[in-house]
Design a binder for these strands. Structure first.
Length: 377
RNA sequence: GCCGCGUCCGCAACGAGGU
């Protein structure tokens, strides 16, 4: 059991769904029935791998020999994968709504950006510990309410490094660099995340000298730290230094790649960007989207068209990127045809075509479209 | 029936689209 438990855990951590399924089958074929403990780990693993349906199947197979852990993992499986409604239903069905369950739901609400729901859920909690309060600090700051974020932070009696980092990021994302660095200097303890958050703040404001000085003085660095540094210099146009960092970092991931790629694309070095893209071993939908965006940014509409045809993944972002490319070159006929071919037209594509018409003084067509939009913001 | 043990159970930093 301990052996299987470790194997399942590592699949969850690596988000390796195929391997996770393999081990699941291995346990089933061993003949013995699955203990609650092992099943819980499977539920957790499927949730982490983005497969809430499989998580539910394992949970149902337990037929009532569930524990609080089973319910919490099931809840997390839906909450973390964007199924907020079903997460709420699971929460209502739970025999015991413990602190962890509340916090899981609170976090999901906060991620989805419904700040009002977050607040009312928080207020309905029988007891809020530091973790719940930290999520609320984050939620207040994300809705640009620094006053409430700071008030909550100051009222806490169990502030930890997460609380400090959350309030720091809150000020940083709301454009307050001075306050951010003041908070940083007052922090009683700092993690690599806190250091990297401060680095991100300098990067966001284009303070490259300070960013570099901070980076050199950091007691620890991880991949994210390096990625932020690469991104800071790439978006300033210093691609030589950015590329040096890319080569110097111990291990690269898609984020590192993306930061450098975006720098090349935005500075007009399309050839370098494409070379980099060809070198990327695993291209996810975002990587393809960035390559498409690079074609559009550099006005290479034919490259964009053929790329769009052969891309193995697409989503609403890639469709809207393609649409923006056609609109940029005023290919209105193709733009309209593409628009109606979009599988799930979100508010961004609608707005894009409406503004495409109005920018070309075709107010009649723009207004017609505006009136039939499913939602408006 | 009681007790104990058992799961990184939940929180912070980095990548693509419109106004």
């Amino acid at each position: 059991t301990g052996y299987y438990a470790e194997l399942i855990k590592s699949c969850g951590a690596a988000r390796d769904l195929a391997e996770g399924r393999k081990i699941h089958r291995l346990i089933q074929s061993s003949g013995q029935s699955c203990s609650t403990f092992l099943a819980n780990r499977l539920v957790e693993m499927y949730g982490r791998c983005g497969a809430p349906g499989d998580a539910l199947a394992v949970f149902n197979a337990l037929r009532g020999s569930t524990s609080q852990f089973s319910w919490n993992f099931l809840l997390a499986a839906f909450a973390r994968n964007g199924h907020l409604l079903q997460a709420k239903q699971i929460f209502d069905k739970m025999p015991e709504q413990n602190l962890v369950a509340y916090t899981t739901l609170l976090s999901a609400c906060s991620q989805s950006g419904h700040s009002h729901d977050v607040k009312s859920l928080f207020d309905s909690m029988p007891y809020a510990d530091a973790i719940a309060q930290n999520i609320m600090i984050h939620a207040f700051a994300a809705s640009r309410d620094l006053i409430k974020a700071l008030a909550l932070f100051q009222s806490m009696d169990q502030r930890n490094v997460y609380s400090w980092t959350s309030i720091l990021v809150g000020f940083s994302k709301n454009g307050k660099l001075d306050d951010t660095s003041k908070i940083f200097s007052k922090m009683p303890q700092r993690s690599v995340v806190s250091w990297t958050a401060m680095l991100t703040a300098y990067a966001r404001f284009g303070h490259l000298v300070q960013a570099r000085r901070l980076f050199d003085s950091m007691p620890a660095r991880n991949e994210v730290t390096w990625n932020v540094l690469i991104g800071a210099f790439a978006s300033s146009g210093d691609l030589d230094f950015s590329h040096q960092c890319f080569d110097a970092m111990p291990e690269r991931n898609v984020f590192s790649w993306g930061a450098l790629f975006d720098g090349y694309s935005r500075s007009g070095q399309f050839g370098r960007a494409r070379e980099l893209f060809d070198l990327l071993p695993f291209k996810d939908v975002i990587a393809w989207g960035m390559m498409l965006s690079a074609c559009v940014q550099n006005s290479r509409i034919e490259d964009a068209r053929s790329l769009f045809q052969l891309m193995p993944h697409s989503n609403s972002v890639t469709w809207s990127t393609m649409l923006s490319g056609l609109l940029k070159l005023s290919e209105m006929g193709d733009a309209v045809r593409l628009f109606w071919a979009v599988p799930d037209r979100d508010i961004v594509v609608w707005t894009m075509l409406v503004s495409g018409f109005s920018a070309r003084r075709d107010l009649e067509a723009g207004r017609k479209l505006f009136e039939v939009m499913p939602q408006q913001d």
